[in-house]
């Protein structure tokens, strides 16, 4: 695929913007064209914060992405708002620790991950975003996982304790994503 678009959506404070930026940095480090597009203005105040990341082999056109291939929702309002927007054939990752519902769409892959619980076990609830990001990369392979970890080290190298927790969170998420991808291929 020459271009992949993914939206991360949740509450402010869930690390939505950071997850998106880390993915964009990783894409850039891998020599791809990238754009990170935040929501700003009144939409920031409506319970959901979101950002969209575009990773592409070619020059990126529209920064307005209404139907991304991938969407990762961290809370219930985001599922309601963004669930229907996943492009057919795309991927929807739901943080099942906080979202007690799912999507009934059968034209997309739905992956439910108890991201908060996994992050807690890894050492901090703050790493929820890393669990989801790991799962996303595992399920799509749009950037190499090693490159993602390298970039995380580059960005957070000074905070050693947090870095270890984030590594662990990324690993756990990645495994779940990778398994889901294999099952999809088999299925």
């Amino acid at each position: 695929m020459s271009q992949y678009e993914v939206t991360f959506a949740g509450f402010g404070g869930q690390g939505i913007m950071t997850a998106g930026q880390l993915l964009a940095y990783t894409g850039m480090n891998a020599g791809k064209q990238v754009a990170w597009i935040p929501s700003y203005g009144p939409e920031m105040r409506g319970g959901t914060a979101y950002c969209t990341v575009v990773v592409s082999d070619e020059r990126i056109g529209s920064p307005i992405i209404n139907r991304p291939q991938g969407i990762c929702v961290f809370n219930r309002p985001s599922l309601d708002k963004f669930g229907p927007r996943v492009k057919p054939g795309g991927l929807l990752i739901i943080n099942s620790s906080l979202v007690d519902a799912t999507s009934d769409r059968d034209d997309i892959q739905v992956l439910e991950i108890p991201a908060n619980d996994i992050a807690q076990k890894a050492g901090s609830g703050k790493a929820t975003n890393m669990v989801v990001l790991g799962a996303f990369v595992g399920a799509t392979g749009i950037v190499e996982f090693d490159k993602l970890k390298e970039t995380l080290t580059e960005k957070m190298g000074r905070k050693k304790d947090l870095l270890q927790i984030n590594y662990k969170a990324l690993d756990e998420g990645y495994e779940l994503g990778r398994k889901a991808k294999e099952e999809k291929v088999k299925g």
Binding site: V34, A35, P38, Y40, I60
Partner: peptide
């Protein structure tokens, strides 16, 4: 425009 100002690119 606001989009150019707010978005991140390489």
């Amino acid at each position: 425009d606001g989009m150019i100002g707010q978005m991140m690119e390489a």
